[in-house]
Design a protein around this nucleic acid. Structure first.
Ligand code: SF4
Ligand code: SF4
Lengths: 135, 135
DNA sequence: TACTAAAAAGACTGTTTATATCCTTTTAGG
DNA sequence: CCTAAAAGGATATAAACAGTCTTTTTAGTA
C-alpha cells in the first residue's frame, strides 16, 4: 500500500536533475526526459504542474526550457510530491472537511493523523540539495 | 497520495468490531457488516483473507461465524493493514528484489526507506486493544 | 515579416486497480 | 436430509493510472 505513482517518481527524478545543474542554466524538457529516462510527453505534464506553482520557471520559444524556481535547499521533497500527487492523506478522514461521520468517536482516526505527520516530517526534512549527487 | 483503500478501511472496522466483543464470542459476518456499515459480500472477502493467515478464526455451518484469532493486544494495526493491502511500500524500489537499477546510487531511495520505517513503526505500535471503544 | 523552436493546453486511448455483486460449493448442526 | 453459514470463483462497473497526439501560444531569429 501507499505507493508513489509513476508520476510522482518521474517528478522527483526530473526536478532533482534540474537541481543538479548550475543555477540559471535553462534545460530542455527533452534533455531532462532523456537523462532521467521518462517519457517526454509525460514529463511535460509534470513540469507544467511545477511551473504553475513556481517550483520551476519555464521559458517558451527558441532557447526556452526549464530551470529551478528556487534554490535547491529551499525546495523540499514534500513540496515536490504534493505538487503532483496531492496532499499526503493516509486515509480519507484526514481530508477537510472530513467525510467520515465516525471521526469524532473513532480511535483509528488519530493514528492516521500520526502517520500523516510522520510522513510529512520525513519528506519535509529533505531538500533537493540533499538529493543531488555531488561528486 | 498514500491513501488507504476502502478494503483496508473496512478491514480495520470489521476486525476492531470483533476485538470489542468478549473473547470466544462467535459473530455472524452479516451482523458485523451491518454494525460497521460495510457491504457484506465485500467484508466476506476481507475476512477470508484474515482467516487464511489466522488473524481471525472462522466456523462454517449453523452456529458458525468469526472470532478473533488472537488476543486483541497481540494484533497490531500493521498486521491488519498489510493483510489486506500488502506490504507498506511507499515506492516500488523498496520491493525485494528491487526493480530500479538506480537504487544503488540514488539519494531518494533511503528517504523512502525511512518513510516506510516510520509508517510501520506507527502502525505496529497500535494494537486492536488500543482501538476498541471501552466505556 | 516569416520561420522555427519550445512550452502550454486539451482531447483522447489503453491498461490496471478498486469496488463491489452474484452464484455455486463446501462444511457443519439439528 | 434440511438449513445455516462461510469459501471460492466468476463477473461487472467505475475510477485511476500511464501515456499519446494534436493544436495553440509564445518567443527568438533570419
Ligand atoms: S479511521 Fe475512523 S474516522 Fe477515519 S475513516 Fe475510518 S472510521 Fe472514519
Ligand atoms: S527513488 Fe531512486 S531507487 Fe527508488 S525508484 Fe526512484 S530512482 Fe529508483
Amino acid at each position: 500500500m501507499m505507493e508513489l505513482t509513476r508520476k510522482g517518481e518521474y517528478a522527483i527524478r526530473g526536478i532533482v536533475y534540474l537541481a543538479g545543474k548550475q543555477p540559471d542554466k535553462v534545460c530542455l524538457l527533452s534533455d531532462i526526459a532523456e537523462a532521467v529516462d521518462v517519457p517526454p510527453t509525460f514529463l511535460a505534464k509534470i513540469f507544467q504542474q511545477f511551473s504553475k506553482i513556481g517550483l520551476v520557471k519555464s521559458y517558451r520559444g527558441t532557447g526556452g526550457g526549464f530551470m529551478l524556481g528556487r534554490a535547491p535547499e529551499q525546495i523540499t521533497l514534500l513540496e515536490v510530491v504534493e505538487a503532483v500527487e496531492g496532499p499526503i492523506l493516509p486515509n480519507r478522514c484526514l481530508a477537510v472537511p472530513t467525510d467520515c461521520e465516525r471521526s469524532c468517536s473513532c480511535n483509528v482516526h488519530p493514528v492516521w493523523q500520526r502517520v500523516q505527520g510522520e510522513v510529512r516530517q520525513v519528506l519535509g526534512g529533505v531538500s533537493l540539495k540533499d538529493l543531488v549527487n555531488e561528486q
